[in-house]
Computed example of a mutant assay.
Amino acid sequence: MGNTVVKICGLQDVEVLKSMLNLPVDYIGFIFAKSRRQVTLELAAELILQLKSWQNGQQPGSVGVFVNPELDYLDQVMNRVRLDVIQLHGQEDADFCLKVKQRFGVKVFKVIQVNGNGIENSHEQLVPKEYIGAIDALLLDTFDPVYGGGSGQTFAWEQISQYQMWCEEHNIPLFVAGGLQPSNVGELITNYHPYGVDVSSGVESNGLKDIEKIKAFVERVKQI
């Protein structure tokens, strides 16, 4: 029970992060790509500093979310804030993912965007074999033509199983994002058993992170 990994993404508020200090959250995501949740380097540094104060004995990993970044920009970010994970949300190929892993000594999460109607958007193949060894986790998210994710919409969950089989075959953790919230994450975990779940808009009220919704989401995930 409670083994599913939780990632809360799109944090921008230091006070909200402080109020999460006793929650069993595994990863905190900070968005550096174009988004209404985008953070500056200065704010990211302040937020990541708060992770050192986590009270449950397990400091969450810090995840930076990027869409088709240049290596020079990643250099700038990593020189200012020390991320544990770089999450790539664009059309980054396996070669780029491997360069990021080797250059910065971080884990790399690669996102595949799935259309809400059940048609894969990013790859003709399920996942190109070149990604094996180049990524540390695969994350499924709902396709968004503008921001590449964070739409708050679910995709066709029946597609998860084929990705799950691929990930299990290659020992790669599978995260699921896209439209998750306290009311539906239990169904997802019960039916598909992903390694981890990733939420952003589903724990917001009026576009801002809501600590009560965050608590409800984490509690729901960890009780299953």
Score class of each variant (00 low, 15 high):
Leu139His: 07
Glu168Trp: 03
Gln223Val: 15
Glu15Ile: 04
Asn191Glu: 13
Leu41Asp: 10
Tyr195Gln: 06
Leu174Phe: 03
Lys107Cys: 15
His89Gln: 02
Asp210His: 04
Val100Lys: 14
Asp13Pro: 11
Asn115Ser: 02
Ile135Ala: 04
Ile119Met: 05
Tyr27Lys: 13
Phe143Gln: 13
Gln91Ile: 03
Gln76Lys: 10
Val111Tyr: 06
Glu212Met: 10
Val114Trp: 02
Cys9Asn: 07
Ile112Arg: 14
Gln164Asn: 01
Gly178Leu: 10
Glu204Gly: 05
His123Arg: 01
Leu21Pro: 00
Cys167Ile: 04
Phe66Val: 06
Ile48Lys: 00
Leu74Tyr: 06
Thr190Ser: 14
Gln181Lys: 15
Lys99Val: 09
Val81Met: 00
Ile48Trp: 00
Glu42Gln: 13
Met20Pro: 12
Gly149Trp: 02
Gln164Pro: 00
Gln113Thr: 09
Glu15Pro: 00
Gly207Gln: 05
Cys167Pro: 03
Ser151Cys: 09
Lys7Phe: 13
Ile28Lys: 00
Phe32Tyr: 15
Gln164Gly: 03
Leu21Thr: 05
Ser53Tyr: 15
Leu23Thr: 02
Gly148Ala: 10
Ala177Asn: 09
Lys34Val: 14
Glu168Asn: 04
Asp95Phe: 14
Tyr147Leu: 15
Leu47Cys: 12
Gly116Thr: 07
Gly179Val: 12
Ile119Gly: 01
Gln50Met: 14
Asn56Met: 11
Gln12Trp: 03
Val146Asn: 11
Cys97Ser: 15
Ile211Tyr: 02
Asp93Thr: 08
Gly133Pro: 08
Leu17Gln: 09
Glu187Gly: 11
Gln223Asp: 13
Ile48Leu: 00
Ala134Leu: 04
Leu174Ser: 02
Gly179Asp: 14
Asn121Glu: 04
Val85Asp: 06
Lys99Asn: 10
Gln153Thr: 01
Val114Tyr: 01
Leu140Trp: 10
Ser62Ile: 04
Lys129Ala: 09
Val185Met: 10
Ser19Met: 07
Phe217Glu: 08
Gln76Pro: 01
Ile119Asn: 02
Gly118Trp: 01
Pro60Cys: 07
Lys7Gln: 13
Leu188Val: 05
Cys9Glu: 11
Ile112Gln: 10
Gly2Ser: 15
Met78Val: 08
Ile224Lys: 05
Asn191Leu: 12
Met165Ile: 02
Asp141Leu: 06
Ile189Ser: 08
Glu42Ile: 12
Thr4Lys: 12
His123Pro: 01
Gly149His: 06
Val185Trp: 12
Ile112Cys: 13
Asp141Pro: 05
Val85Phe: 08
Asp210Tyr: 01
Pro173Lys: 05
Ala177Glu: 05
Leu21Glu: 09
Tyr73Asn: 06
Tyr192Val: 08
Gln162Gly: 00
